[in-house]
Amino acid sequence: MTSAPRAAQLGLVGCHTCGLVSAVGQAQCPRCGARLHPRKPDSLARSWAFLVAALILYIPSNVLPVMYTSMLGRGETSTIVHGVVEFWKSGAWDIALLIFIASVAVPSTKFLVLATLLVSARRQSSWARLQRARLYRFIELIGYWSMLDVVVVALVCALVQFHLLGTAEPRAGIVFFGLVVVLTMFAAMSFDPRLIWDGDEE
């Protein structure tokens, strides 16, 4: 595929913070002072821990209501999926699709992709390396858009404050959902994509 040598073969290490290339053996980057390590420390274990924690919190984030709204004295709670269905029924299929992608499709994709990357990296698999590398960059790119629902709940709750006529309040589901997004981002950041290519030199 490519003849480019890898850092370990040349006895080099790239700083993960500033990018400077230096010889292995130093504890700190001589330019920016960040700790130098050839691979992110405990990458697989940390990434799994964040991923499993996110998966556990994903259940209450979908089951529990994310928002309580009352209109003219009639109160109701809504979950994330409920919000998508409401938009769909009211004819705003494009917004329904947008929220579905950000709140359901993106987190689910992250779970599946990260689990696949973690399992294949542990086995030092040579299967579809280029595609796996692209998948990692893809979830890095899309991951934080899941925060969309948190923003919508915040805005609606700040705006709909008309006492008897109508009010809106956040509920526990949105807390769990926000934490799921943060944890999946930590899981993706903890994974070291260099592991995908370890063993490629031979």
Partner: peptide, 16 residues
Amino acid sequence: MTHPGLVICEYCDSVY
């Protein structure tokens, strides 16, 4: 020792 003339891919550790 540092090598400012080199760059290492942060995703796969290839040296250029």
